[in-house]
């Protein structure tokens, strides 16, 4: 702000002060109410900085709060991915337990002994038409 601009601002302030003295009580009351509401909604400085930084896509001057919030967000995402992966692995493992349970139950209860399923000679014998 140069000297002329400062002078102009001072003149405006003087006129405003002068006019403020003539404001009617009702108008003054409404102005006070509006100011109080504006002050109540005032965002804390640190949070405002973070939001502005996030809004414009981030830059070197974004400040520590932006990095903190971004780190928390990425940490959350990474945690979710890890938990989802772990959960999927557990689910697959349980599925395999159920599959084996059913298969083994029927296999062990079947007419054939275990050896019949494992004996390669038996497989070859069946395949070659029961050669003697």
């Amino acid at each position: 702000m140069n000297h002329r601009e400062a002078e102009f601002a001072r003149k405006i302030a003087r006129h405003l002060d002068h006019a403020a003295a003539d404001i009617r009580p009702g108008t003054l009351y409404r102005l006070k109410q509006a100011r109080a509401a504006a002050m109540a909604n005032l965002v804390p400085a640190s949070s405002a900085t973070g939001e502005l930084a996030a809004a414009d896509g981030g830059s070197v001057s974004d400040g520590p709060s932006y990095f903190r919030s971004a780190a928390v967000r990425w940490l959350g995402v990474a945690l979710l991915v890890a938990v989802a992966g772990f959960g999927y692995q557990q689910w697959r493992s349980m599925q395999q337990v159920y599959e084996f349970e059913d298969l083994d139950l029927h296999l062990l209860a079947s007419d054939l002994p275990i050896d019949a399923y494992l004996d390669r000679g038996f497989q070859n014998w069946l395949r070659n038409g029961f050669e003697r």
Binding site: V72, R73, G87
Partner: peptide, 18 residues
């Protein structure tokens, strides 16, 4: 404000999933 909500939601989801 919206970013606060996203952060809180992410944290809550992470804790619940954990």
């Amino acid at each position: 404000m919206a970013s606060e909500r996203v952060r809180a939601l992410t944290r809550a989801l992470a804790v619940a999933a954990l």
